[in-house]
Design a protein around this nucleic acid. Structure first.
Lengths: 116, 116
DNA sequence: CTGTATCCTGTAAGATACTG
DNA sequence: CAGTATCTTACAGGATACAG
C-alpha cells in the first residue's frame, strides 16, 4: 500500500499490536499487582485487599472480574459459614510470570541506580 | 511489627515496590510503544508520530519528555535548515528490552490463543 | 519540522455507605 | 466475608490552532 517502508512492515505491526494487546489485558493501576500477589499463592478477597496496599474493595472487585474474564484468574466460592472466595491464577495467568519477573528485575535495579 | 506473616515480608515489599516503580516509569498509553519503536532505530519526531499509530503531537511530546527525564531517551537537535530532532534510546532505555520482549511474546501467543 | 498552548471530555479511581 | 451502589474528582488523553 505504501511506497517507502523500512523493515518488514508486517513484522512491525505484529510487534506493535502485541504490545498493545498485552497492555490492554494488564491495563489499569492494579492488575499487575494483583497477578503478582496471586503468583505467590491463592488468596481470599480480604487477604488480597490486605496484601495489596491501598486498593479499594470496588477496584479489587472490578479488576478481579476483568482478570477472570480474560482467563487469568479463577474464582472459587467455598460454602463455609459466611462464604469465602478463593482467587488463584490459572495456568494462563501464570504464563505472565516472565513479564512480571522482568519488571521486578528492572524495578529493583532502577531503584538501586537512583541511589547513586 | 505484625504477628502473622507469610513468606518473607521484606522480600514481598521489595517485589511489590519494584513492580510499582517500573509501572510508574512506563505509565500511560504510549511509553512502551515509543520505547518499542525506538528500540528498532533512532527516529525524528515526525517519524515517530507516523510510526506510532494514532498518537497526537502533544502526547508524543510529553511522553518523550518523561522518558528523557528518566534517562531512557536521548534527544539531539540537529541544526539543519528547519531544525530536526533525533530521538534514540540510551543504553538505559535499551535495558527495558527484556520487558518489551516478554510483552511481545505474550501478546502474540495471546492473540493466537484467542483464535481457537 | 518540532513542538507548545488551550480547551474539552471520558474514564479511572477514590470515599463512603450499604447488602446477602 | 465478599462484594455492590453511588457519588465525586483528578487527570490522562484527544482536537485544534498556533509559534519558532
Amino acid at each position: 500500500m505504501k511506497d517507502e517502508i523500512e523493515y518488514s512492515d508486517e513484522a512491525c505491526n505484529v510487534h506493535h499490536r502485541a504490545i498493545q494487546d498485552t497492555m490492554d489485558i494488564l491495563s489499569g493501576k492494579w492488575k499487575l499487582r494483583i497477578v503478582g500477589s496471586l503468583s505467590l499463592n491463592k488468596k481470599r478477597f480480604m487477604e488480597l485487599k490486605a496484601h495489596i496496599n491501598g486498593i479499594a474493595a470496588k477496584m479489587l472487585s472490578k479488576e478481579l472480574q476483568d482478570l477472570e474474564m480474560n482467563g487469568l484468574v479463577k474464582r472459587t466460592v467455598i460454602e463455609t459459614k459466611p462464604i469465602t472466595v478463593e482467587y488463584e491464577l490459572t495456568a494462563y495467568g501464570h504464563s505472565l510470570k516472565p513479564i512480571i519477573d522482568q519488571m521486578v528485575i528492572w524495578g529493583i535495579q532502577h531503584r538501586k541506580r537512583l541511589k547513586d
